[in-house]
Write a protein that binds this DNA or RNA. Sequence first.
RNA 1: GGAAAGGUGGCCGAGAGGCCGAAGGCGCUGGUUUGCUAAACCAGUAACUGGGGUAACCUGGUUCGAGGGUUCGAAUCCCUCCCUUUCCGCCA
Length: 447
Amino acid sequence: MLGPLFPRGVRPMLDLKAVVQDPEGFERRLARRGPEAAALLQPVKTLAAERRALNVALEELKKRQSEANARVGQLMRTDKAAGEKARGEARALGDEVKEKERRLGEVEGEIEKLLLFVPNPPQDAVPDGRDEKDNREVTRWGAAPRFDFAPRPHWELGEALGVLEWQQAAKLSGSRFTIYKGAAARLERAIAAFFLDVHTSRGYTEILPPYLVSRETMTGTGQLPKFEEDAFRTTGEDPLYLIPTAEVPLTNMHRDEILEARHLPVHYCAWTPCFRAEAGAAGKDTRGLIRQHQFHKVELVKLARPEESEAEHQRMVDDACEVLRRLGLHHRVVLLCTGDMGFASAKTYDIEVWMPGQETFREISSVSNCEDFQARRIRVRYRDEKGKPRLLHTLNGSGVAVGRTVVAIFENFQEANGTIRIPPALQPYMGGLARIEKGDFPRGVER
RNA sequence: GGAAAGGUGGCCGAGAGGCCGAAGGCGCUGGUUUGCUAAACCAGUAACUGGGGUAACCUGGUUCGAGGGUUCGAAUCCCUCCCUUUCCGCCA
């Protein structure tokens, strides 16, 4: 056992009150994600009723107990015998309180355990569907580049240029790792720096967060407890988890805080490595950079008032698209269907970039509005005009995946001779380099 | 990793078994005074949760780092854990 997830009592992951008041409505919304999701609510309803009954009884008991205690204190000073008698009564009440509290703790723990596995219900605007085939294209930018030769996938290009290397990486770490060399390594760094500069100039504050986080942090954003097998974790009694995305540390930064309204909306961006076990992805995207255990991503995170989260969501999609526009990469925006959305999200847009070498659009960014789902887990709130604390909405999106941008640049800007043009926007970050060619390792070993 | 000192409201800080959700101060909000500002003075200022009311509001319970124990009763005593600060060691 890993011990209690939260030390301080129950944190309903869904609004327990709303679930109890309108169970049918909740189940209907959840059912759009699949029948299993809605079924999770059944036992919650019974437990919620018991919790309520216990609470009412406990309050009454505690009130009587504190009155009895006060009596004991008074009597002990005046009438010893009467005091002893009152003490017996108080003790009986105390025992009863303890027993009820024990049971209440049990019930609340049970409710919490169940609710932690219930996903965020989708927004009404999200289309129904089972998988990515049911996603809905929203916009498209640019055009696929035309080639007078057969464009090659990035792994062939990278290997031929000697700048991407998989055999040595497998030697070090096994499958799903890559070694970048020379201009490719610099390209990864250049892309990250470029993305950060774009986003910070558009109002995001750059953060460099920890890459290892606690179990509670992973639970706050919804990676745990349901997706334990997707994460890497350290050994030992209190393991730390390697972040699968900077969303995890960035969103949790203000956990247990009440923000002042004047600070909203909060905009953060961060460039971090991301670590994913890719359990269940066996045989998928086994070649190239697309699906790795370790990759870099520039992440965007916002904390916003509920009434502005939809507008902020749209703007965040635009912020992610902006870097692709500046690189001249053909892409489209897709609204994910209910079946393709992440656990914590109420609405997600994917941005997919055209990959000529694979003749398909590939996801390069995913931008989600989690509404108050994560905020409820991590208790991040703000004070409204009346000074009352209210849950914020959390949003996150890739801005964008760095490794996959390398893939897109290789495949979209390849030439017949196998060299890669560097998009003008990146050249200042590459020391003026305009093209990746073979053999630029001053003291490395060519293969 | 070793040693020591600490963790109390938005912040600082007192409290050392009942009269303590907690003195005092700062900050904040409202008011009085004031040519304006400042100052002064008065008042109000935590969160969570249950109930009542259209509402302003009224009302019960919980919370002094976390968990457990002692006790009729714990911020206060005991145990465990976590965190912070300082010093030492080790390092990037």
